[in-house]
C-alpha cells in the first residue's frame, strides 16, 4: 500500500525533477546495507499549543500539539528509526507564552520526544534568562553553532552539534541562527557573538563528515529566501555549502508544497524543507541510506 502510494505519487508530483535512472524498483527494498530513516520536523511553532479556533478565518480548527503528537506516535509505531526536530521560534504567539513564559512549550516538546531544536530569534523574547528558565524543562538539546554564547549565561545551555545513532546510521545535526541585531533588542541577547552562518555551517558539517556521519542535517533559522540579495538564506547556505545533505528551515514561515533542491559548491544536491508555522504541518522526510556510504560525498539527487 505504502509502496503503491510511493509509485503513484512519484508519477504525480515528480514533474520538473530530471531523472536519469528509473531503477527504483530495487532501490526502496531494504537490504542489509540499507537503513531507512524517518525525519519529522517542525519550525516556528510559536507557542501554538491548541488548534486554531473554529472561527479562525484562515486555519479553522487546524494544528494543535496534541494532534501532532498523535500523528507522530502513529509513525513511530511503524518506523523504528525516527528523528523529531525543530528549527526554532518555539516561543511567542499565543497567551500560553505570556502566561507560562515558555515552560509549557518545553514540557510538551519533551513529551513529544523531540530529539533536538535550534534557537530562533523569538526564543530570545523573554531574554536569555527567560529562555534558560524555560529550557530547564526541555529534555532535548538546543543546537546553536554560530551563536557564540561564551560570555553569556547561555554558555553551557547549548551545543553546536550532536551526532545521533539510528539503526546503525550516524546522523550529524547542527543548528544555524539568524543575525539578531535589528530583530531582537540588544538587551535580550547581550554579549552573544554572531558568527558567519555559511562559514560556521561548512566548518561544522566538515567536522561531522570527518566523524563518519552518513547524513548531515542543518537546523536553520535563517529563512528560506529573500528579495534582498545580500541577505543570507537557506538557498544561499545550500548553494555555498559542502557536506550538508538536508536543511530544515524556519523563520520565513514558508509553506512549501515540495522541498527545494539546490546545488552545493560541488554540484551536489541539497534538500531544503520548511513547514510554514504554528504547527499546522509536520514535515516528513523518509530517506534510505547505505551504511557503507561514508565519505565526503554523500547524497546526490539526480
Amino acid at each position: 500500500m505504502k509502496r503503491r502510494l510511493f509509485l503513484e505519487n512519484f508519477v504525480l508530483t515528480s514533474v520538473g525533477i530530471l531523472l536519469t535512472d528509473f531503477s527504483f524498483g530495487t532501490t526502496s527494498l531494504k537490504t542489509e546495507n540499507n537503513e531507512k530513516l524517518v525525519i519529522l520536523h517542525t519550525n516556528d511553532t510559536h507557542s501554538n499549543i491548541d488548534p486554531f479556533p473554529k472561527n479562525h478565518s484562515k486555519y479553522p480548527g487546524m494544528g494543535g500539539i496534541a494532534k501532532r503528537f498523535a500523528v507522530i506516535q502513529k509513525i513511530r509505531k511503524s518506523e523504528p528509526n525516527v528523528l523529531l526536530l525543530d528549527s526554532g521560534d518555539i516561543f511567542q504567539g499565543t497567551p500560553y507564552f505570556n502566561t507560562f513564559n515558555g515552560v509549557l512549550e518545553m514540557k510538551c516538546m519533551s513529551k513529544l520526544g523531540y530529539d533536538a531544536s535550534t534557537m530562533g530569534n523569538h526564543d530570545f523574547d523573554i531574554g536569555m534568562d527567560g529562555f534558560l528558565a524555560a529550557k530547564k524543562y526541555a529534555d532535548f538539546p538546543f543546537l546553536c553553532a554560530n551563536y557564540d554564547f561564551s560570555n553569556t549565561i547561555l554558555s553551557e545551555a547549548t551545543q553546536p552539534y550532536k551526532i545521533f545513532r539510528k539503526g546503525g546510521l550516524k546522523i550529524g545535526i547542527f543548528g544555524i541562527g539568524i543575525k539578531l541585531n535589528g530583530l531582537v533588542p540588544t538587551s535580550s541577547y547581550g554579549d552573544t557573538i554572531y558568527q558567519d552562518p555559511i562559514e560556521i555551517a561548512n566548518m561544522t558539517a566538515a567536522t561531522l563528515k570527518k566523524q563518519k556521519c552518513e547524513l548531515v542535517i542543518c537546523l536553520s533559522h535563517l529563512g528560506f529566501e529573500y528579495q534582498d540579495a545580500t541577505k543570507v538564506s537557506d538557498i544561499k547556505l545550500a548553494q555555498n555549502s559542502e557536506n550538508i545533505d538536508i536543511i530544515l528551515g524556519g523563520h520565513t514561515h514558508t509553506f512549501m508544497e515540495k522541498p527545494a533542491i539546490e546545488k552545493n559548491k560541488r554540484r551536489q544536491n541539497v534538500i531544503i524543507n520548511q513547514v510554514g508555522w504554528a504547527g499546522l504541518q509536520l514535515g516528513r522526510i523518509d530517506i534510505e541510506l547505505s551504511k557503507k556510504s561514508v565519505g565526503n560525498q554523500n547524497i546526490v539527487i539526480d
Partner: peptide, 20 residues
C-alpha cells in the same frame, strides 16, 4: 507527497520521499 531518487556517490541508489 514528493518523491525523488537519490544517487549516492560510491554506493547504491537511495530513495528520498518527502511529505508535508
Amino acid at each position: 507527497y514528493f518523491s525523488i531518487i537519490c544517487l549516492c556517490a560510491c554506493s547504491p541508489k537511495l530513495a528520498v520521499n518527502v511529505e508535508q
